[in-house]
Amino acid sequence: MTAPLLSIRNLTKEFPVRLGAFGERAATVHALDCLNIDISEGETLSLVGESGCGKSTTGYCVLNIQRPTSGSVIYAGTDIAQLDDDGMRPFRRDLQIVFQDPYSTLNPRMTIGEALAEPILFHGLARKSEIRDRLHQLLADVGLSERFASRYPHELSGGQRQRVAIARALACQPRFIVCDEAISALDVSVQAQILNLLLDLQQKYGLTYLFIAHDLAVVRHISDRVGVMYLGRLAELAPAAALFVQPLHPYTRALLSAVPSTDPRAARTRQRLQGEVPSPLAPPPGCRFHTRCPLARAQCRSDVPPLREVVSGHSVACHAVSSPTATNWEHSPA
């Protein structure tokens, strides 16, 4: 194994909020709780989970767009989680992000060319005289003609805007891109185009992706490894192939079972997860999934299950699962 490109260590994020009509009650949203992941160069690591699981927060904290409450993010030997804006600036070129909503991700008052040229000129990556060629190449990379450079965002379709957003992320020749639900808001027929584009660009430039999504089929399609998150913690982390063939955590199994299938007969005979995700304002003690878990035992209500590697590269945080074969699935009432 080579050294990871990026190491996330004990990353924790809490948001103070004020509740009540007059903000009289202080509370804390526990968005992310002691997350540990290594991301290798050139891989696609996906984080999946339901809303409030902390997957987007992870992306923002890794890029230091939101400052983590504690923990570190080691990139190129530096703990970037501790850096301020000025200290972060040189790293911004390497670490980029593509957002979910193509309609608000571009400044409506700037042409596509201006939007793409800004980071290049700001970081001094090209001279004014070279900028035209660079724009041409960037737009070509994302499958757009040079003529888009003089257009404004409102003249573009959602898919085209998302291509521009990807080009903007590429403008500084980054090594790592966070794709925060980058295709979720797009139309079905356009999603596949953008997924293909992301795969092509990864091949061409050796990019590393942190892919944040809720669509398991999409995640399975493009990921090397997948982390399943629940209420701010990793439930399971495994190579994509292993996770989808042999999901070990009860939450992963439930998520997979909830994926709509295009086979009408299969679709009507699935197991269902009952209840809803508890509030991150007051996450349950012990295993945070125990309130919905069909296997929950007394231990799950009090002890936090550690993330253990049960097979090489396949880790799971569940008291009921000690190895891929020795689970108590068979004895479960569900």
Partner: peptide
């Protein structure tokens, strides 16, 4: 998001405020 994106590009607050 476009302001967050500008921050992610490392642009300074002054540029973000005046241009974005």
């Amino acid at each position: 998001p476009y302001v967050t994106a500008a921050r992610a590009l490392g642009l300074t607050n002054r540029i973000i405020l005046t241009r974005y």
